[in-house]
């Protein structure tokens, strides 16, 4: 039985359509990721599901309650970690936890085992004002506050934005352990590399779900050949590829250029090398690679653009 059921959800702010015809289900005990760039509509979706915002049209039920009418019932059983730091910066770590535990009518002692692994990391700083914690520690404290009433469903809106890579990794390990405690997690992130850590992901672009599946299925759905090559002339190459003698999609990917070809690499490799030599582009490490979720996202976005035009 699905814990969240969303059908044809729409929300607009004036002329800006933040969500367009979004439909999806979240099942029990899964980590469901909403992946998309800034401004895609992630926070709007979370605000509707956490009953802080009313949708314009469409239906959404959370824990079998309608977000429009039964919002008080929903609020009792969900935990929410908002996209911006939403604790009291002048209260200490401990004071924040005690305050929110009381607000959620929860017993700290009873639910301590649930947050203990995270709380232990915070213990050395328990007298420190929350505003003076590092980004990662802030998020861990916020997570403790969101978990202290043992919610059935946990909403995390971009929990790792502005957090260093080590803490991000740690944070995701914590999420896996939360899932093992039987709590269903809905998490949004702009980081594509984090998407693979979810059980299922939905790719959100301009308020629309452009793809929803397990990360593995999304990657195996990738059509075309993904070629990666390393070059110091990345900007020049980017310009030149628009005049390439073969159809391709290309984008810089760190220090590499990723090129999606419509034919196998063996057929096009000579042509590609000749093209690069002709324009005196130095390159190395040219090879076919397995796509990441980010590559899939870019491919899907480009394809949907191509269909629209």
């Amino acid at each position: 039985m699905a814990l969240i059921e969303v059908t044809h959800l729409n929300k607009a702010y004036g002329k800006v359509k933040a969500l367009q015809d979004v439909s999806f289900d979240v099942h029990e005990s899964e980590v469901f990721g909403v992946v998309g760039p800034d401004g895609a509509g992630k926070s709007t979706l979370f605000n509707i599901l956490t009953t802080l915002l009313l949708p314009d049209s469409g239906n959404a039920t959370v824990l079998h309650h309608d977000v429009r009418t039964d919002y008080l019932e929903i609020r009792k059983h969900i935990g929410y970690l908002p996209g911006t730091f939403s604790l009291y910066p002048d209260l200490s770590v401990e004071e924040n936890l005690v305050f929110f535990a009381t607000m959620y009518q929860s017993d700290i002692e009873k639910n301590m085992p649930l947050i203990l692994p995270i709380w232990q990391q915070l213990l050395p700083f328990k007298k420190r004002p929350a505003g003076k914690l590092s980004g990662g520690m802030k998020q861990k404290l916020a997570l403790c506050c969101a978990l202290i009433h043992k919610p059935t469903l946990l909403f995390l809106d971009e929990p790792t934005t502005g957090v260093d890579p080590v803490s991000r990794k740690e944070f995701w390990e914590i999420l896996r352990s939360i899932k093992q405690q039987g709590i269903t997690v809905v998490v949004s992130t702009p980081y594509m590399d984090e998407a693979t850590l979810c059980d299922r992901i939905a790719l959100l672009q301009n308020g629309q779900f452009i793809k929803m599946d397990t990360p593995q299925a999304i990657i195996s759905d990738f059509r075309g050949t993904l070629v990666s090559l390393r070059t110091p002339d990345i900007f020049r190459l980017h310009k030149l590829l628009s005049n390439a003698p073969f159809r391709c999609t290309y984008y810089p990917y760190g220090e590499h250029m990723h090129i999606i070809l419509e034919q196998p690499l063996e057929e096009l490799l000579p042509q590609l090398k000749q093209f690069l030599d002709q324009h005196q582009i130095q390159f190395s490490h040219i090879q076919q690679i397995t796509p990441s979720v980010e590559d899939c996202f870019i491919e899907i976005v480009k394809n949907s653009h191509a269909q629209n035009h």
Partner: peptide, 13 residues
């Protein structure tokens, strides 16, 4: 402004 009101709103208090 700091968003703590959101936390209080979704709390059953």
């Amino acid at each position: 402004e700091t968003g703590t009101m959101r936390m209080l709103l979704i709390a059953p208090v």
